[in-house]
Amino acid sequence: MDENPGLSEQYRTASPWPFFIALSIPLAEAGILFNLFAVAVGGLLLFFGCCAGMLQEAGYVDRPWRSLVVGAVIVLAFGGLLLYADTQVANEAVQLAERGYAVLVAGIILFVGGLLGEVFVDDGEFAV
């Protein structure tokens, strides 16, 4: 039985990335909101890592590493914003700095990962 009559056989019907991207968003959100350092870092890494992988899979980029660096810049900017906001908030109960550090750590890991991949991973492995 042909499940897809009339459809090109080259059509891709599976991708492992969406599931983990969907999982990473609540992890990152909950981690940042409830100030859970590891969950925030892990959720952000998972999100931007899988986005880079998916961009490569879809053919929008050749290699995932620069996407990681772009992700890192966004994350670092957000972390910086949180740190700046913390200095503007007088309320002692609101701890934006800790959340900011978690986001910054995720950004640094993404940045280093992207940089190492760009420099050290052999281009031959990604040959067309």
Binding site: S8, R12, P16, G53, G59, V61
Partner: peptide, 30 residues
Amino acid sequence: GLFLVGVFAWLTRVENWSGYTPLSSGGSAV
């Protein structure tokens, strides 16, 4: 950490990252 390592290991098993053929059109058909 264990979760992320597990995801990474599973992804490398399921997906052959180095084997993608990028499309010039950037479309969804590969």
